[in-house]
């Protein structure tokens, strides 16, 4: 069953002679439970695609359908509610609130949604336990390593049990070991907990964990491939495809 679908999705920044086409009539679909990676060089429009799918930005043309519902027609408050309940975000720079603890950061979407603090904290603690952060619940972000902070950010993305996880270069700010751990975690989220994931990355080793890969260039999808496994061989193939772009 299709969870996300885009129709002629276009985003143009600026106007007149200085106009930049970031996304050019992109059509794609993402099935429930699927793990999709989008790859491409810097400035190809992959992050813009993720922002539009997540309702963070509005397209110049085209539509984004989530379960058949047009996101571009929603009011700002409805979009915010949608982001709280049905979409989880994981960013490159973690984006945790510096004055809150790991537990409070992870519980934030629930608290913003009006869930009672005790219940929100219980559910956040559960996710942090699952992601191996059970012993760091009351640490503030500046007391955690990059990998640990990203785990907290993933717990925050999962805590409201959303249908869709959007990850924007989640390993871009981590060393290779921590990056591998996070990539494996995303795979687990998809396989074990059945979440749909849209991952934007230019790292073949991370993308190799996905089910399917879209290649983008100059705002358009130019190729697509389906992966059978997650081994180094797949990564090498992807690396070669990327170099060819």
């Amino acid at each position: 069953m299709t969870l996300i679908q885009t129709e002629n999705l276009t985003k143009i920044y600026g106007s007149g002679e200085t106009a930049v086409v970031a996304l050019d009539r992109v059509n794609m679909a993402l099935k429930q439970g699927e793990f999709l990676a989008v790859m491409g060089p810097s400035g190809c429009g992959k992050s813009t695609l993720l922002h539009l799918v997540g309702g963070l930005d509005r397209p110049t043309e085209g539509r984004v359908l989530l379960d058949g519902r047009d996101l571009t027609a929603l009011r700002d408050d409805d979009l915010a509610a949608l982001r709280r309940r049905r979409i989880g975000f994981v960013f490159q720079f973690y984006n945790l609130i510096p004055v809150l603890t790991a537990l409070e950061n992870a519980a934030l979407p629930l608290l913003l949604d009006g869930v009672k603090p005790a219940e929100a904290h219980r559910r956040a603690a559960e996710w942090l336990q699952r992601l191996g952060m059970g012993d760091r619940l009351h640490y503030r972000p500046d007391q955690l390593s990059g990998g640990q902070q990203q785990r907290v950010a993933i717990a925050r993305a999962l805590v409201s049990e959303p249908d869709l996880i959007l990850a924007d270069e989640p390993t871009g700010n981590l060393d290779s070991r921590a990056g591998d751990e996070i990539a494996a975690l995303l795979r687990r989220i998809s396989s074990e907990w059945g979440r749909t994931i849209l991952l934007v990355t230019h790292d073949p080793r991370v993308a190799a964990h996905a089910d399917r890969i879209l290649f983008m260039k100059d705002g358009r999808i130019i190729d697509e491939t389906r992966l059978a496994g997650t081994g180094e061989g797949e990564a090498q193939t992807l690396r070669e495809r990327m170099e060819a772009l």
């Binding site: 700002d76 915010a80 609130i97 979407p109």
Partner: peptide, 9 residues
Amino acid sequence: MLRAIGASR
């Protein structure tokens, strides 16, 4: 970031 994870204006 708060807006991104669903905080309203």
